[in-house]
Design a protein around this nucleic acid. Structure first.
Lengths: 341, 341
DNA sequence: ATGAAAAATGCAAGCGCTTACATTGCTGCT
DNA sequence: AGCAGCAATGTAAGCGCTTGCATTTTTCAT
């Protein structure tokens, strides 16, 4: 498979322009270190030859790829789409390319992807959430690869993070729900093992329950993978109990939409018969019927900040400080007071 | 000795295992060409050193990346998510890695992404749709990089494709709509310039209209980017005419969900006051209220087939034959007969 | 045992680029 | 005119790996 046979190389360009390869390289990477006349000659050779630098060779020689790797739990729904889009746009402005892969929420896959991205020479890494085998960070540290965590801000974690306080955010929402009069609360959480965001959201709910004098038996919790169908199933289970909850807090919007859908199938009116809330405020939340009350996360801002932070770490060799972003509740139609008993 | 703080290389492993670098390389790439005892020794050195092959170096030496590049129009919604997922799973089985990037439906960005992927050494490329500057294919051909097109099957295009007949699929749906009695049809299409899929879907509608004796003035067409909000806007425009359509065919499910949403906001009942249909059958279509009548596309099958085809082209140096997949209408609640006038 | 074929391993030449250092060619000062 | 000093360009040493070919070791039929 010698497909490269026909691709022109630096040498070809140099020969055609009558200069050394060093000069061609400079034309491409430090144009101002070459005199105008030469540069023009070289660039026109590049043009007529249709030359494109060989990435692998460049990486080998320069020991730097200008590439950032990101591993997100899923690409199947829009949870990370908007933030990642902003991340990549900002990266692009600074001359970096983004490589994305997804871990399907599986730690072992995430680890494999990290290795792949590192082997491919990622100059820096964006990871989601803090929960992770510490050996991974040991290894990354040893290789001196800057890592930034997003979607979860923890002030004194080992790795700097750009994100929000999942616990406080969910606390606020749960508090609001209880304040409306709900006393039996259902929770449909994502799988919390290895997922600090899911865990912190649960804790936020528990904080609010405790603080408002609910018993732990008033809170019915279910964990399930983050998919619409699972939200629906969990909803059924929760509502088929003797004293079903009057409000159901979901770990994210996807789960909430599943719950919403099942509620309709079961002939339950939302929020009259049961309230349902989400988390993330992705587009789906606005579109759902009824529109979802949820926690708004500043996705684009988070992505942009993460990019700036990571680029800063890369170019100044600094440790990175992290940023905590604010979230807020968006009240739409899916949350109301409980029905009068 | 000074390697301690940076990534170990093949040399380090070789030294530690007391063999040559060639042997280490073979252990990693052709394990059976090395005797057991040696292999074990080498692998344990790999392990204790935490060695990971340097991708760029490997590519340079082997002239092959085992990487496939794919450029899809968007990652923001789920249109391509499922198919791409299947594509990558199948690729993985054959030892290939997938690199994805998105073009935002812009030809010039697609072109840039192609160059990037090629520079990065993609062994093969998956592209969406056939519309594309021919120079791009000239260049790819010259570099001998196999290309496969998906999401649109064209039997005698320059490049082999795995997909379905967009025109026929949309024809079938439009025919069904007209058969139900609709005479004034609205169409919310994606932007057709540079997008053969959008264009063929429009043509399918026109075929059906003509064949059923509708006048071209009975079909009101709007083009708009593929986003929910645009679907909503287009819906408003279409319905604010003197004689608004009784059925609206949307170029994809995303647009249709936008239309559905706006209908509700305007107090129109679907399908009693107006019918709305989609295309693609992504999860959103099932979840929407009312559930969307749409054209089912075998996303996973398409992704899988595309992977097999592309791997075949790569490994057998063949041209690729392409595959046409069948679609079918999924009737849910958003389509009904027109209201009695 | 013995030698030839087969299996295992080693040697070393690149792959296409960047970059430290060396060389050449100018500028403008005295 | 002569030369320091700098700008422009060239030279060549790798970067870490794979692989064709050479060499050594093992296997096995005799």
């Amino acid at each position: 498979m010698s497909k490269l046979r026909s691709a022109p190389t630096l040498d070809d360009v140099a020969r055609m322009a009558g200069v050394s390869t060093a000069t061609v390289s400079r034309c491409l990477n430090n144009p101002d270190r070459v005199v105008d006349a030469t540069r023009e000659r070289v660039l026109s050779a590049v043009d007529t030859l249709g030359y494109t630098p060989n990435f692998a060779a460049r990486v080998m020689a320069a020991k730097r790829t200008s590439t950032i790797g990101a591993i997100i739990p899923t690409m199947e729904n829009a949870i990370f789409a908007r933030g990642l889009q902003a991340f990549q746009e900002e990266l692009h402005k600074h001359g970096y390319t983004l490589l994305v892969s997804s871990s399907a929420y599986k730690p072992e896959i995430e680890e494999e992807q990290i290795r792949t991205l590192v082997a491919r020479g990622a100059d820096g890494l964006l990871l989601i959430g803090h929960d992770r085998d510490r050996k991974i960070h040991d290894d990354l540290e040893r290789r001196k690869i800057p890592v930034l965590v997003a979607w979860s801000f923890l002030p004194d974690a080992r790795v700097p993070s750009v994100g929000f306080d999942n616990r406080a955010a969910m606390f606020e929402l749960a508090h609001r729900v209880i304040e409306l009069g709900h006393r039996r609360i259902g929770v449909i959480s994502g799988v919390s093992a290895g997922n600090d965001r899911a865990r912190h959201r649960i804790e936020g709910i528990q904080d609010a329950a405790r603080q408002n004098g609910l018993l732990s038996s008033d809170v019915m919790m279910l964990e399930t993978p983050y998919e619409i169908e699972n939200g629906a199933e969990a909803f059924s289970k929760l509502m088929s109990q003797d004293a079903p909850p009057t409000a159901i807090l979901c770990g994210n919007d996807v789960l909430a939409v599943g719950a919403l859908h099942r509620a309709r199938e079961m002939g339950l009116r939302v929020p009259d018969d049961v309230s349902i809330t989400g988390f993330d405020d992705i587009e789906l939340a606005r579109i759902a019927t009824p529109a979802l009350t949820t926690v708004h996360v500043p996705h684009r801002e988070m992505g942009r900040r993460a990019a700036l932070e990571l680029v800063g770490m890369l170019e100044n060799q600094t440790q990175g400080t992290g940023t905590r972003l604010a979230t807020h509740i968006v009240e739409r139609q899916s949350l109301g007071p409980p029905a009068k008993a």
